[in-house]
């Protein structure tokens, strides 16, 4: 099985990924890691619509993330 790297926002609904890094300002990184989005954490894409932010499941609870931050998170996906 090989691993593929992509942005969190590119995950399909129901797909899981492991966070590899966050590329963004210190501010955003700090907030995201405080909410539990640290490298190595598994996230699952629950929902993404055209007009809404994305909704993910992480560490047993659900988070809504704006498109801007969802683009800054890189994940690894098993293929």
């Amino acid at each position: 099985m090989s691993e593929k790297s992509m942005r969190l926002i590119d995950l399909k609904e129901g797909q899981k990924g492991i966070i590899s890094s966050i590329v963004g300002g210190r501010h955003a990184t700090q907030r995201l890691t405080d909410m539990g989005l640290t490298p190595g954490t598994e996230v699952k894409m629950l929902r993404k619509g055209n007009w809404c932010p994305v909704e993910i499941s992480v560490r047993g609870s659900n988070l809504a993330l704006g498109y801007g931050v969802a683009r800054k998170i890189l994940v690894k996906v098993k293929e």
Binding site: H27, P53, E55, L65
Partner: peptide, 10 residues
């Protein structure tokens, strides 16, 4: 200041 994006617990 940096604009704050939505990061919200549901």
């Amino acid at each position: 200041g940096e604009p704050t994006e939505l990061i919200m617990e549901m």
